[in-house]
Amino acid sequence: MKIIRDATAGSGEKSDCTVTVRPSEQLKIDITGSSAAFFRETMIDEVKSVLEELGVTAGIIKVTDRGALPFCMKARVEAALRRGAEE
């Protein structure tokens, strides 16, 4: 899967997160928000696991967190990726 356009998923509600994806030659994962101080490394691994599953190797992935649990964040990442990818 390849990111060809900017796309977003999620919300700014508590226990959710906003995920933005953008096309890029390189892979960059950016994590900010309430859980970042506690789970940065874990969250990067969780994002990477979704990228791997969907075969995404490049793009800018930005997660702005408000306390999303892992399943929620991973679902938001997947939704953003699917929205930003070619059909």
Binding site: S34, S35, F38, G67, A68
Partner: peptide, 8 residues
């Protein structure tokens, strides 16, 4: 207390 707040 809740067992976690957000993810914490």
């Amino acid at each position: 207390a809740p067992s976690f707040r957000g993810r914490i």
